Amino acid sequence: MDTALKPRSTGRLMIVGFLSPTVLLLLFMVAYPIFSLVHYSFYNFSALNPDKGMDWAGLSNYEYLLSDSGIWKRFVFTGKFVFLCVTMQMILGIFVGYRLQKTFRGRDLLFTALMLPMMLSPVVAGFLWRYMLNSEWGVVNFLVSLFGFAKVDWLGQAGPALWAAAVVDTWMWTPFIILLATAAFRGIPETIYEAAEVDGASAAYVFFRITLPMSAPVLFIALILRLIDSFKQYDLFVALTGGGPGSSTETVSFAVAKTAFSYFYTGEASALAVILLCIIMGLAMILVRHLSNMGARH
C-alpha cells in the first residue's frame, strides 16, 4: 500500500514544484498591486507628499466619485467609445476574415498588409492620426475637400473627436479580429460546406447557420478581449486628443491617470481605479460564463 501511494505523492510534489514559481509570480505581480490599490482607496493621501501620512477616509472617496457628475460623463464617454469600437471591429473583422478564408492570388500579401496597424504602439498611431486629422492641413480634410465637402474640425469638437478616436482604434485593432476570425473560419471542416452545397444552401444560409455558429466560441473570445482592452484605453487618447476639447474625450482610465499624476490625489485615483476594475471584472465574468454555457451546448 505504501508502495502504491509513493508514486502518487511524488507526482503531487512535482506538480507543486512546477506550479509554485508561477503562483508566486502571479501573487507578486497581480495580487499584491490589486491589494495595495484597494488599501489605498480607503485613505486620503498624496504620493507627492508622503511625509504628511495617510488619513483614513473610509468610503468617502467612493461617495465623492460616484456623486461627481464629471466622473459620470467620463463613464458615459467610455461606454460610447467601447460600443462604437467593438461594434465596428467585430463587423469588419468577421466580414474581412470570412473573405480571407478563401485562397486567392495575393491573399498572403494582403493578409500581412492588414496586420501592420496592429504592430504599432497606440501612442505612435495616435500621433500619426493626429497629423492626418489636422483641421487645416491634414490629409483627411484634404480628401474631404476634394469631394466638395467642408473641412471638419475632427479633434476640436466632442462629437467628431469621439468618432475619430473610434476610427483610429478600429484601424488598429480590427486586424486582431480578422486574425482570430480567419483562424476560426478555416478550422471548420470543408466537408460541411460541401454537404451544404449539395443540399442547395444559399451563401447567406451557410454564413449565418454554419459559419457563425461553428466559429462562435472563438469570436466570443475576441469580443471579450476587445471589450476589456477598450474599457481601459488611455494612451491613444493622450496622443490623439490629449483628452480635449476640454475634458470631453477623457476616458475613465484617463481620469485615473490625471487624478493620480496631475493632481496627486492618490486615494481618489485608487478608488476610481477600483471602480473601473470592478466593472471590467464583472463584465468579463458575465461574458466568460456565457462562453462556458456556449461551450456546454456544443
Rank of each mutant, 00 (worst) to 15 (best):
F237E: 04
T87L: 15
V23Y: 13
T249L: 06
S248F: 08
F254H: 00
C85A: 11
G148H: 12
G200V: 13
P189Y: 12
T170V: 14
A271S: 05
L37A: 09
F149N: 07
G106Y: 09
G93K: 07
L19M: 12
I275L: 15
W163P: 01
I94A: 03
V123M: 12
A4M: 08
A181S: 07
R105G: 02
E136M: 11
L48Y: 13
G11Y: 05
E250M: 07
V140M: 11
N293W: 07
E190Y: 11
L100K: 02
S247R: 12
L5I: 09
F95W: 11
E63P: 03
F104I: 03
G159F: 08
P21N: 04
V140F: 12
A125H: 01
G242V: 11
S202M: 01
L109H: 11
F142A: 11
V206Q: 13
G97W: 02
A181G: 02
S9W: 15
N141G: 04
F264P: 03
A164L: 05
A183S: 07
L84V: 07
I279P: 00
F147L: 15
L65P: 01
L146I: 12
S248M: 12
G138A: 09
V23G: 08
P7R: 12
A204Q: 14
F237V: 05
L133M: 03
A260E: 08
M29E: 10
W72P: 00
L84K: 07
R74M: 12
V38D: 07
G243M: 08
V76M: 14
P117I: 08
I224P: 10
Q89R: 06
V23K: 10
G246E: 15
M119V: 14
Y40D: 14
V30C: 05
W129H: 04
L120D: 07
L240K: 03
T249G: 05
R99F: 12
L236G: 04
C278T: 13
A57T: 11
A216F: 00
F237D: 02
F127E: 10
K232C: 01
M14A: 15
L27F: 05
A184P: 04
D55N: 13
G106C: 11
L146E: 14
K258T: 08
F231V: 04
G242H: 09
D229T: 05
L114C: 02
